[in-house]
Amino acid sequence: MTELGLEIALLGAALAVGLAGIGSAIGVGIVGQSAAGLVTEDPDKFGQTLLLQALPGTQGIYGLLAGFIIMQQVGIIGGAPLNLTIAQGYAFFMAALPIAIVGLVSGIYQGRVSASAVGLVAKRPEELGKGIVYAVMVETYAVLALLASIMILFGIDLG
């Protein structure tokens, strides 16, 4: 007999990938617009702004990573899905939440910081590093969330 555990776990995986991805997409989108504005007037800034644009993209990757681990743990990737109890399913779901939520929000805010850094690069191209540092500060919390998600994932008892 099958329980709904697997579906709940997969919902978690989907949220991790989806929400973090949305966050990244919005973030990258904002930076992209801002960078496009700058590059219209000053095409030489393309390389630097591209770097800034890439920064909010990591949340999506973290989300994917978390989703991937869930999928592997529940056996979707191996082709032999486990039969999870509802409790186990929820455990996976919970594990996905940190990176899903933090990924969404931090992706957007990192995008905003990066877009501001585009303004910084417009004025002082040599200060690109500092702009990146500001954006990366936001990244910290995505990394922490990813860490939490992974720790929970590996702590789930599948026995």
Binding site: I26, I30, V31, Q33, S34, A35, A36, G37, L38, T40, E41, D42, K45, V105, I108, R112, A115, V118, G119, A122, K123
Partner: peptide, 22 residues
């Protein structure tokens, strides 16, 4: 959260480049 103000992202980016030419 996505808010209305990011519609200015392009314009502000471009203005930054323009400001530099003042």
């Amino acid at each position: 959260m996505p808010s209305d103000d990011t519609i200015y992202a392009y314009a502000v980016g471009r203005t930054r480049a323009l400001e530099k030419r003042l």
